[in-house]
Amino acid sequence: MKKSAGIILLAIIFISSLFYSTKTTLASEMSFTVKAILPENQRSQEVSYYDLRVTPGQKQTLQLELSNDTDEDIVVKASANAAITNDNGIVDYSYNKTKKDSSALYTFNELAKLPEEITLPKHSKRTVDCVVTLPEKAFDGYILGGMYFEQKGVEEAAKSNESMAIGNRFSYVVGVLLSENDREVKPELALNKVSPDQKNGNNVVLMNLQNKQPALIKKLQVDAKLYYEKEKKPRYENHQTALTMAPNTNFDYKIDLNEQPFVPGNYTVKVTVNDGFRDWQWEKAFTIEEKEAKSYNATAVNLPPEQKQRLPWHWIFGGIIGILAVIAGIVYYFRKKMKQQQMQLEKYKTHEEK
């Protein structure tokens, strides 16, 4: 019992740190507010998000109160989103079109239905319903998601006047945590694909980390080292602590090359991960091809000119030699043919003289 209580308390503390309202306006400029109306199956009344104990096949309507205290009517865009782990290692609820993780049985966006647009007249309040339909089959662990609200028109304004639009951007997230029992589900982490890539014009190596279980990870530590060929000392490395992972999600952890070009060859990454309770260790080899390295180096924004892609002279010379060989072959063919024709002509003349 003490162990279960500790797990529940840890989950509540963790989720509290994850659910937030994103505001980029000043308090006096707030366009609207969102408040969760907590139902009877709420596990804790001390939090402002939905932490619900549900049952298989249950259909529940979650209610939220939206308020507009301004002097203008506004339209709010809304979406019920599955929680993801973004590439900064942070649980994120702001994406409504994300690819379902291969390990996930259910995602919040599949279970929840929310109006896409909500009109709020000036100085008014409105109750909005989100209908959640639980799967018939029971599940252990957590389904995690959030209801995301943003004032409509911000993106359009940003295109016409970005400096003005940024100051007026305003959004809310109300988190939803669904569980059916207190059975502990432990994370199961995996290292998937490793590959060279580019982020914001910077050369990086990406390592896809996956949480295969419906378990929350509050404090993830990742230590990644990149080795070239058979070198014993890593060329590049990255160590981060206090990352978070949502249940049944994956993200790309990166090693930055720090203003260095990709060098073609064979590489190995060694990755150690700790979720606060146990370690995972992986070692994976991969190859960066010469053509691939040159392509990334040519478009990297942080490389000095001398390290960008140079002209591939060996290919150029090879091409020139090939073209010359073709020309020489054509010349040889026509000279040979002309010689044969000349010999036939001389033979014909000799025959006529006789």
Rank of each mutant, 00 (worst) to 15 (best):
Tyr227Arg: 05
Ala5Phe: 12
Tyr296Gln: 11
Lys349Glu: 15
Phe286Asn: 12
Phe139Leu: 04
Leu26Arg: 10
Gly6Asp: 10
Gln341Asp: 14
Thr98Asp: 08
Leu177Pro: 08
Leu177Ile: 11
Val54Glu: 04
Arg335Leu: 14
Asp223His: 02
Leu64Ser: 06
Asn109Trp: 01
Val131Ser: 15
Val271Arg: 01
Ser16Lys: 10
Ala293Gly: 04
Val54Tyr: 08
Met164Leu: 07
Val132Thr: 02
Tyr332Asp: 02
Thr70Gln: 12
Asp140Gln: 07
Asp71Arg: 15
Lys125Asp: 02
Lys2Asp: 14
Leu111His: 11
Tyr227Asn: 02
Arg183Gln: 14
Tyr172His: 13
Phe317Trp: 05
Ile118Cys: 09
Ala104Asn: 09
Asp101Cys: 14
Asp140Pro: 03
Val91Ser: 13
Lys35Tyr: 02
Ala157Asp: 05
Ala5Thr: 10
Asn86Phe: 07
Ala112His: 10
Lys270Arg: 07
Ala11Glu: 14
Tyr236Glu: 03
Glu29Ala: 10
Val331Asp: 02
Leu303Asp: 02
Met30Thr: 03
Ile118Lys: 08
Arg310Ser: 08
Thr33Glu: 07
Ala224Thr: 02
Val331Pro: 03
Gln198Asn: 12
Phe317Thr: 02
Gln240Asn: 10
Pro135Gly: 09
Asp51Gln: 05
Lys347Gly: 12
Tyr253Arg: 12
Ser48Gln: 13
Thr98His: 06
Val132Gly: 08
Leu10Pro: 03
Thr268Gly: 05
Ile8Leu: 15
Ile217Gln: 13
Val75Ser: 09
Tyr227Lys: 03
Ala138Arg: 11
Met245Cys: 06
Ala5His: 15
Gly318Trp: 09
Ser17Val: 01
Glu353Asp: 09
Gly167Trp: 02
Arg278Gln: 12
Lys308Gly: 03
Arg335Cys: 07
Val194His: 15
Gln341Leu: 08
Asn248Trp: 15
Leu52Pro: 04
Met343Ile: 15
Lys254Gln: 15
Thr350Phe: 15
Gly265Thr: 10
Glu65Arg: 13
Val173Pro: 09
Asn161Leu: 11
Gly141Met: 03
Leu10Ile: 05
Phe19Ile: 15
Ala224Val: 04
Leu189Pro: 06
Tyr296Glu: 07
Arg53His: 05
Thr241Cys: 05
Tyr348Lys: 12
Asn211Trp: 03
Ser102Glu: 11
Asn86Pro: 08
Val173Glu: 14
Lys186Gly: 05
Tyr296Thr: 05
Gly276Val: 00
Leu10Asp: 15
Trp313Ala: 04
Lys23Gly: 01
Asn41Phe: 01
Met30Leu: 13
Tyr333Arg: 03
Asn238Trp: 07
Ala5Lys: 11
Leu189Asp: 03
Tyr49Ile: 04
Trp280Gln: 04
Leu38Tyr: 09
Ala158Asn: 08
Asp129Ser: 12
Leu66Val: 02
Gly141Ser: 02
Tyr172Ala: 07
Lys193His: 09
Lys113Gln: 15
Lys199Cys: 00
Lys125Gly: 05
